[in-house]
């Protein structure tokens, strides 16, 4: 029931932002359709679990974001350097890296995988249980895995039992 209510509230906020109309007709239409959507899909948006841990996950991700942005900017500059370098082929050394991760929860694995893909010079190819396959553009980026990012993700999202 609480999942349904949360879905409804999220949908309603989204509706208000998207429509921008505050008269009774549009708001009642929005409430009606949000109720319908919440009833259909309340088990899609949120997984089972107490609402408190969801909130803690949210704040964990918020604390993780500044670090991620810093990494993205640095890594983008690195890729820009490689692309603009006249003898580019000497700089790159593509390879496939496999490593095991200590992350347990699916959400932290997904966050970690997406972060790897977002920071340039590495792409997550697949995640099987706890084995990551990562395509790395340069040797240094291949060696830096999993590294500090995994610890940050673990600090933000793991150990919530």
């Amino acid at each position: 029931m609480s999942r349904m209510a949360t879905t409804f509230l999220a949908m309603l906020a989204f509706w208000i932002v998207l429509s921008g109309m505050f008269d009774g007709f549009h708001l009642s239409l929005g409430i009606l359709s949000c109720l319908l959507v919440a009833w259909f899909s309340h088990d899609l948006l949120l997984s089972v679990g107490p609402i408190r841990s969801r909130i803690r996950d949210f704040f964990g991700i918020l604390r993780y974001l500044p670090y991620l942005f810093k990494e993205i900017v640095l890594a983008n500059l690195q890729v820009a350097y490689i692309v603009l370098h006249p003898r580019m082929l000497d700089l790159i050394d593509p390879s496939l890296v496999r490593f095991r991760t200590s992350l347990k929860r699916p959400i932290s694995k997904v966050t970690f995988g997406q972060s790897i893909t977002l920071t340039p010079a590495t792409i997550t190819v697949s995640i099987d249980d706890d084995e990551f396959t990562v395509y790395a553009l340069t040797r240094s980026s291949a060696e830096s895995l999993p590294g500090e990012m995994e610890r940050r993700v673990a600090a933000a999202l793991e150990d919530r039992r």
Partner: peptide
Amino acid sequence: LFFFAVGTLGILRFPDFYTRLQAAGKCDSF
């Protein structure tokens, strides 16, 4: 705009498909 240009140059200059993805996937999104 600079990073858009870098991403576009990347997908034109890199030697194979996977390296092109690097430039396209993230320089462009950033």
